[in-house]
Lab assay of single mutants.
Amino acid sequence: LQLFIKTLTGKTFTVEMEPSDTIENLKAKIQDKEGIPPDQQRLIFAGKQLEDGRTLSDYNIQKESTLHLVL
């Protein structure tokens, strides 16, 4: 599923993930694309901070959802 990642600077980029992927996987993918170390990434969806060990489906993140990346 394609997700939109929006940064505080207003930049938006996309990543391609599976619902079974963990937040950790997502942070690694963001590191590949943007060079931001996972330990500096905080991801927010629907007002909640996402925890590394959980999956996208745990948070009911669907295709074309927008996640906010806070550094």
Score class of each variant (00 low, 15 high):
34 E>I: 11
26 L>R: 00
4 F>S: 08
5 I>T: 00
49 Q>L: 10
5 I>W: 00
26 L>V: 08
50 L>N: 00
13 F>L: 07
10 G>V: 03
8 L>I: 13
68 H>W: 08
46 A>T: 05
47 G>D: 07
5 I>C: 01
68 H>C: 05
19 P>L: 13
68 H>I: 10
5 I>D: 00
12 T>H: 08
39 D>Y: 15
68 H>V: 10
36 I>A: 04
50 L>F: 02
13 F>M: 06
55 T>D: 03
12 T>G: 08
64 E>Y: 15
58 D>E: 08
7 T>Q: 12
5 I>Y: 01
6 K>M: 12
56 L>Y: 01
45 F>S: 03
1 L>P: 04
70 V>H: 11
10 G>T: 03
23 I>K: 00
10 G>Q: 04
20 S>A: 10
50 L>K: 00
4 F>C: 04
5 I>S: 00
45 F>N: 03
28 A>R: 12
23 I>V: 13
42 R>S: 10
55 T>K: 10
47 G>W: 05
28 A>C: 04
60 N>Q: 12
44 I>G: 03
4 F>T: 14
40 Q>V: 11
9 T>R: 08
18 E>G: 08
60 N>S: 08
41 Q>K: 01
14 T>D: 06
49 Q>F: 12
22 T>W: 06
70 V>D: 07
26 L>P: 00
55 T>A: 08
9 T>C: 05
11 K>Q: 08
51 E>K: 06
34 E>K: 09
2 Q>I: 12
41 Q>P: 01
57 S>F: 12
1 L>H: 07
71 L>R: 09
61 I>G: 02
17 M>R: 01
47 G>E: 06
44 I>W: 15
49 Q>C: 05
62 Q>M: 11
38 P>W: 11
28 A>W: 10
4 F>R: 14
47 G>T: 05
68 H>G: 05
16 E>Y: 15
17 M>E: 01
17 M>N: 03
14 T>M: 14
28 A>P: 01
32 D>C: 05
32 D>F: 12
51 E>F: 10
5 I>P: 00
5 I>A: 00
46 A>N: 15
24 E>G: 13
2 Q>V: 12
13 F>S: 02
14 T>G: 06
53 G>N: 13
38 P>L: 15
69 L>W: 02
20 S>E: 12
23 I>C: 02
10 G>H: 07
52 D>Q: 05
37 P>G: 06
8 L>C: 05
42 R>H: 14
41 Q>S: 04
50 L>A: 02
58 D>F: 15
